[in-house]
Amino acid sequence: MALSDSDLRILRELARDGRQTNAELADKVGLSASQCWQRLRRLENSGVIKGYGARIDHDALGVPETVLLELAMERNEGIEVEAVCETLARLPEVLEVRMTTGDFDIFAKLAVSGTRGYERFLRERLYKIKGIRQSRSSFSLRCYKDEISVVP
């Protein structure tokens, strides 16, 4: 689907604030409310807009630490990387899972309650997944940018 300048303005504005009314959005992107609503529905129906959500403060939920986890899979055990990715994606601590290239096959981003919470994740969840050959993890010290989407 080809995106117009108006579509891109709508997407940029929604990425900044997804809760604004259609009238507010239309005013900010320079369209009538009707035109804006029609474009918004087209962007949603075509799948360009996948959904809407709230950004949650993990500190308030008791899981303030972010762990970046890389996993390398055994090649000869017949374990599909995709199946492990799907298993990880179902775990509540896991915020993001990606199949990757390079030395590691999978990247995952977790929200945990410190080192003890991470140890519990490892013991009770990760170590029970078959086929993982190696893992490497890093605790994020500070986040400088945390965007959900990019609009060119």
Rank of each mutant, 00 (worst) to 15 (best):
E24C: 02
R75A: 13
A33F: 03
L40D: 03
E44D: 05
R42L: 12
L40I: 06
H58N: 06
L71K: 09
G51R: 09
D27R: 15
N76I: 08
E65L: 11
A72R: 15
N45R: 15
S32P: 05
V81W: 00
L61F: 14
G47N: 11
P64G: 13
N22L: 13
H58Y: 12
D27C: 02
A83K: 14
L69C: 08
A23V: 13
R75T: 12
S34F: 06
E70A: 12
T21W: 05
N76S: 15
G47T: 07
L40P: 00
A72Y: 11
I79S: 00
L88H: 03
N22V: 15
W37C: 03
W37Y: 06
D57L: 12
T87P: 01
Y52W: 07
W37T: 09
A83P: 03
N76W: 08
R75V: 06
G47I: 04
V29I: 12
L68Y: 08
V48I: 14
E86I: 00
A72Q: 15
I56S: 01
C36S: 14
E77Q: 05
I56K: 07
L25E: 11
E80V: 00
Y52H: 10
G30K: 03
T21V: 09
G62Q: 08
I79E: 00
V29W: 03
E80R: 12
R75P: 05
Q20V: 12
R41D: 01
L31T: 09
L43V: 08
W37N: 15
E44P: 02
E44L: 06
T87Q: 13
C36K: 05
G30I: 04
R75E: 12
A60F: 07
E24W: 03
W37V: 02
G47L: 07
R39V: 05
A54P: 00
K28F: 05
D27M: 07
V84K: 01
L40A: 04
D59T: 12
Q20Y: 01
E65M: 14
R55H: 12
I79Q: 00
D57H: 12
E77W: 01
N45I: 02
V29Y: 04
V84D: 01
V84R: 01
P64V: 14
R41T: 05
E86W: 03
S46C: 10
L25V: 13
A26D: 14
T66G: 02
G78I: 02
G53I: 01
L69M: 12
K50G: 08
T66P: 03
A83I: 05
L31N: 10
L61H: 09
M73L: 15
D59L: 13
E70M: 11
A83E: 10
G53K: 01
E86T: 06
C85V: 13
L88V: 06
N22Q: 13
G53E: 02
C85G: 03
R75F: 09
Q38F: 05
N45S: 10
L88P: 00
R42A: 15
M73K: 11
G53A: 12
L68K: 04
V48N: 04
E82N: 09
L40S: 04
M73H: 07
I49R: 10
T21Q: 09
T66A: 13
L25I: 08
R75Y: 10
E70G: 07
A23Q: 14
E70T: 09
E86F: 03
R41F: 02
E80A: 02
L25N: 05
L25H: 08
